[in-house]
Design a protein around this nucleic acid. Sequence first.
DNA 1: CGTTCGATTGATACCTGTCAACAAGAGTGG
DNA 2: CCACTCTTGTTGACAGGTATCAATCGAACG
Lengths: 215, 215
Amino acid sequence: MERGERWINEDSEFRKAYVIADGWAIRYKLLEDGRRQILNFLIPGDLVGYFSLLFSTSICTVEPLTPLVVHSFTPEKAFDAFRQSPQLAVALSWLAAQAERQLDEQLVRIGRRKATERMAHLFMEINYRLLRAGAPPQAAKHFPLTQPLLADALGMSHIHTHRTFRELIRAGLVSLDAGKVVLRDRNALSRLAGFDSSYLEQGPLPAPTREALAR
Amino acid sequence: MERGERWINEDSEFRKAYVIADGWAIRYKLLEDGRRQILNFLIPGDLVGYFSLLFSTSICTVEPLTPLVVHSFTPEKAFDAFRQSPQLAVALSWLAAQAERQLDEQLVRIGRRKATERMAHLFMEINYRLLRAGAPPQAAKHFPLTQPLLADALGMSHIHTHRTFRELIRAGLVSLDAGKVVLRDRNALSRLAGFDSSYLEQGPLPAPTREALAR
DNA sequence: CGTTCGATTGATACCTGTCAACAAGAGTGG
DNA sequence: CCACTCTTGTTGACAGGTATCAATCGAACG
């Protein structure tokens, strides 16, 4: 898939879910007057449209930010797999649950953090997720994000986003390189954001759940 | 459970999930400096802690707003039930998916709507959900919400929340009655909020998913 | 070579947060 | 029963954050 193509879940009669193999995408909602809120950024390893298999209409849009490679699966395949392996069902549920935790944090970011905190926090989250997904440490510091995208993700105007971004640059925390955001000082960013990665960590299943699953 | 008791998921060694039978609760996160973001309001019929069965640490707090009656179930019971009835597993997943749609909309509300729109939109959502859960039309217009709660849910200061609330009262859209929010003019609220209920509607499962499940 | 999009800047208005203060009611403990 | 405290609701003044408007510039694109 190419950047800019609109990959709206609602239109596809033949419903599928996807896992992103390579590239970035965004999931967003539009208001009638054009205001846009980006709900989350989708990177390799992320699940797309899993829950939308349960609804006949989609309420949001997914759009590639870069050339995108995805794996897809149908509801039939999913249920067949679940019957053979409850572990797989739990694994997919885990991914969905993880995504919901990120939504929770996105809510805190927008609702209760100040502009610079918001931006720094988002950068740290993406960095963490890229590393978790297996990106090399250097690659995990480069984001293909424009200021309008940041604005719509952080719930600010693009102009204020620009000023906030400049502030982070001036403080030496980030920089711009060929249209890409580059993290320069993750420690300082983390401190500024009050970033606590615990909501992103992948521990083992709790013992009771593990035992119940094994039976 | 009584109001004010803290019902933190993290502390309970014996992990369970819950369905609210009666009463209201909130799910929220706190920042270190005391800022609080309410992620959602929980009303009868809502699922609590379902996904947290998959994690060993909780990242948010759940707290009753009113006297609360809940049903609980353990991971073992859940998995046993799923083995007997895939339909039940899908039903629970549907509830979780529905909750995520509400999170999406909460993000749009906070990120891209103005103060009065935010408040009106939240009121409409809760009204819709109460009706969907079987509340009588009159009861579905009365919310046990205080201004500090609204503030932390809408991502605004409690003072500005007060001003915004006064504005809705002045316009005759809502009123205060014995500490409760009362909806007076749902049509006007809906119009002001730009409320579109499609994200809350419960249609049938899409055909491919239904067929895959039936096999 | 127009056109579009992103980055950038300055001026201005306004929305929103903060500070300070007080009233009223609920609950608490003496 | 009376302080006393805590929460909620309320108001005004004020500062500051943020949005909006207007405009320029460069790069990418067709």
